Simulated scan of single mutants.
Amino acid sequence: MAHNRVKESCSDQAVYYLVTNRVAGGRMLIKDQEKLKLKELLFAGCARFSYQVIDYVFMDNHFHLLIKIPATAEMSKVELLERYRLHKQNDEINFISSIQRNDFREKIHDISFIIGNFEQRFVQWFNKEHSSWGRLFGQRFDSEMIEVSAQSDSLLRVMAYISLNPVRAGIVLDPKDFHFCGYSDRLAGGDVGKLDHEFFDVFCRGIEAHVTRDKQKHFREVLRAYMLGLRCYKNADSKTVKEYLLTESSSLPEALQWDDLFIHKCRFFTKCLVIGSEAFVREKLAKFSGKMKWKRIHEPYTEAEWNDIYSLKPRRRRASVG
């Protein structure tokens, strides 16, 4: 059954999405071989389409991806043609018109097309590998637009949620020990961490760094602190992450055992369309509410423990009286 999806088509700014899907019936079908294939297909797609992988985790019955869609205006005609030829597997093919070129540009910046192609390729491989047929995933994937700005720590909260999946599942005590997630990948110098320096100015206030490698290092320290339970630090009176790491990291247990793991497990992160500050959620609500055929009223939603992070969810029905 088709469901609503909030999508931006931006020519001058990047858009970030949390993407989730699950195997039909919750079956544990994604073993190590399947996880390796998912990772291979995910990063291979970056060359054909226009997206970058910020984070990921592959579990036995589901996956989470954090995807950045760059601004459409950033891609030159030469690069666009290269991706078109890769997609068509033809080194000599050309666009027949500017309309076709523009349509392809929009398509490879569309989260529905990107993830649909990724899932289709994996299911085709899976069915061939296991001599099976039919659907593998239970439904269309869920996607949530994520705010990335100095006004919200939504990105860090989502990345912590993704990284802690194998911890919540009891597979490891620390995500650095789980091979199929972005956190261990970035610590090993994989492709998934190459963009970490882009978040330095947004999330590493109070820390000095000038070269890319140092910016990447400090951002990963911030992410680590979030996984260990650090909340955001929004004002001048707040402890900086550098001070936090110097004064408290030595006393923290190696295993990630902080009290509010259950908060990250809630469906807040996977069924809510938009995640960010209240202003960001209200902006998207105003922009998209007229286009959506919602049967229930949607509005910004938060809880006290979520540290000023809001989602766009349907209003809860009031219990009947009498």
Rank of each mutant, 00 (worst) to 15 (best):
N4P: 06
D12A: 11
L18P: 00
L18Q: 10
V19Q: 02
N21Q: 05
G25S: 08
L29V: 05
I30A: 00
Q33P: 05
E34H: 09
K35L: 01
K37N: 00
K39N: 04
E40T: 11
E40G: 03
F43L: 06
F49G: 10
Q52T: 14
Q52C: 12
V57F: 06
F58S: 00
F58V: 02
M59V: 04
D60S: 12
I69Y: 08
T72D: 12
A73V: 10
M75R: 15
S76P: 07
K77A: 15
V78L: 14
V78W: 11
L81Y: 07
R83M: 12
K88W: 10
K88N: 15
N90W: 12
E92T: 14
I93G: 10
I96D: 14
S97M: 08
S97D: 07
S98W: 03
Q100E: 09
R101N: 05
N102F: 02
F104R: 09
E106W: 01
I108N: 06
I108T: 04
I108S: 06
D110T: 01
I114A: 03
N117Y: 08
R121H: 09
F122A: 01
Q124D: 10
W125V: 09
W125T: 03
S131A: 04
S131K: 08
R135G: 12
I146W: 02
S149P: 10
S152K: 05
R157D: 08
V158S: 06
Y161I: 06
R168S: 01
I171C: 00
I171M: 00
D174K: 07
Y183H: 05
L187G: 00
K194P: 02
L195K: 13
H197K: 06
E198N: 11
D201N: 09
C204Q: 04
G206P: 03
I207R: 07
H210L: 07
V211I: 12
R213K: 13
R213N: 11
D214K: 03
K215M: 10
R220M: 02
E221Y: 03
A225H: 05
R231V: 07
N235Q: 14
T240D: 11
T240S: 15
E243N: 13
Y244N: 14
L245H: 03
S249W: 02
E254L: 11
Q257I: 14
D259E: 15
L261I: 04
L273N: 01
S277N: 05
S277A: 07
S277E: 05
A286F: 11
S289R: 15
E303F: 09
I309C: 12
S311L: 09
K313C: 10
P314D: 07
R318C: 13
S320M: 14
